[in-house]
Design a protein around this nucleic acid. Sequence first.
DNA 1: ATTGAATAGATCCTATAGGGTCTATGATCC
DNA 2: GGATCATAGACCCTATAGGATCTATTCAAT
Lengths: 244, 244
Amino acid sequence: MNRNENSAVAAPAAGRKPVVPRRALRDGVYDAILERLLDGSTPPGSSLGIDSLARELEVSPTPVREALVQLEHTGLISRVALKGYRVAAPLSSEQLAELFDMRTILETAAVERAVSQVDDLVPELRAAHARQVLCAHRVRKLRGADGRPTDFSDLREYFAADWEFHLTIIRASGNRFLLKTAESLSAHVHRLRQTADHGTTDLEQAVDEHAAILAAFESGDPERPLVAMREHLAAVARRVSAAG
Amino acid sequence: MNRNENSAVAAPAAGRKPVVPRRALRDGVYDAILERLLDGSTPPGSSLGIDSLARELEVSPTPVREALVQLEHTGLISRVALKGYRVAAPLSSEQLAELFDMRTILETAAVERAVSQVDDLVPELRAAHARQVLCAHRVRKLRGADGRPTDFSDLREYFAADWEFHLTIIRASGNRFLLKTAESLSAHVHRLRQTADHGTTDLEQAVDEHAAILAAFESGDPERPLVAMREHLAAVARRVSAAG
DNA sequence: ATTGAATAGATCCTATAGGGTCTATGATCC
DNA sequence: GGATCATAGACCCTATAGGATCTATTCAAT
């Protein structure tokens, strides 16, 4: 999610970002817990004790508490007052369908609005896609005879590049609310990736489909990017639900 | 927003709501601060001191801190680490256009998905509209010679009924992510209402346009609700930006 | 007069302690 | 044997205190 350019700190809902992001302790705690949630080390249903986390992270309960409140709105954890926080259950098949339906709503709308800015978009999209291809190559190269990558950090980087491709289009829509909503959905998307570790298998397909989207934007036809994006999201949804 | 059926407490991202919502102190603080933000008693730019709020609300800083973290994600307040919280500036004309663009994206998508459930939807929509008409009548009756309503609680009720009409359609879409996103946007929508107090003047128009949407659903034509909703949102956007 | 540093106040951030609630275990009664 | 109640432990929730940071004012120097 947003770990590099931190949108939580100094979140200017209507202002410019500070050149040097000022971070309090609670922001670091937020990242640490998010990391645990996304790499799957905390199974769904397990309780997130405030005191436990504070001891493990060697901080006081107060920043932990704030980080959990912030995490609550992502849907990755659920809270019951006077009972505590728990890791949210993985998305059901219905919720999964709803998630990709929502992504289709948002990202097709983004494409519709991005076609008018195609001149600014295409270079950025080319760069984003190039980075993804590079990461994909690195992952493909490293995975040995077992077919699974040895270094997960490369996989993480690939996922980030993949998602960045989508974000580039959404940013080009010029709608801040659209972007913010898509970012809030990214947590679920990322968690899906590690749950279904087939993420390594559909790597080439995703790269190809992104290439198709890029080519569609380059064509100048305002309709082609729409169908390309729709097909890509449908294909991803198919692959994800097939693994479930 | 969600003050009656509290979605913050015991938020089951994938579960049933508890029959009796368990509330901690921080939930009440959240409501209290939200109230202050929406009724305009705290002008944009004013700082929200944690200790100050704690003294005024007669609680300790900790629950105030948690409530502020929760409010931060609504966009109504902005935070700068090590500096504090401030009431966010009102939406600029561009942001306002983006907000209504986003609403159009979400609500037209909701309409598209709701038409398949039209049999379940129409009765609920009729009831919601009836409540809105009732509230509108009450407001219209009460406002005296000065043309402004004397009791603001009636106006609040009308706004709630208006928004409930939209929520009813969005719920019928069956997409939880869509619903959640719309709810998170409601804070901005409600703040707009009180900022531009012309909310009392376009009361009849809004009721009429809602009636048109309802009639469109009743017609059975799947296209008519779409255009009715689009026109309604465009009309609201026009009225809002005209007052700005 | 303007710039610069230094000080004081306020505020945020973090840590620690105590009260209240919930869950679980074990004993008692029917 | 099953159910009810009591007790103990863990945890959440709230309150208070101290350290760190920022802003504003004041004063001195150029």
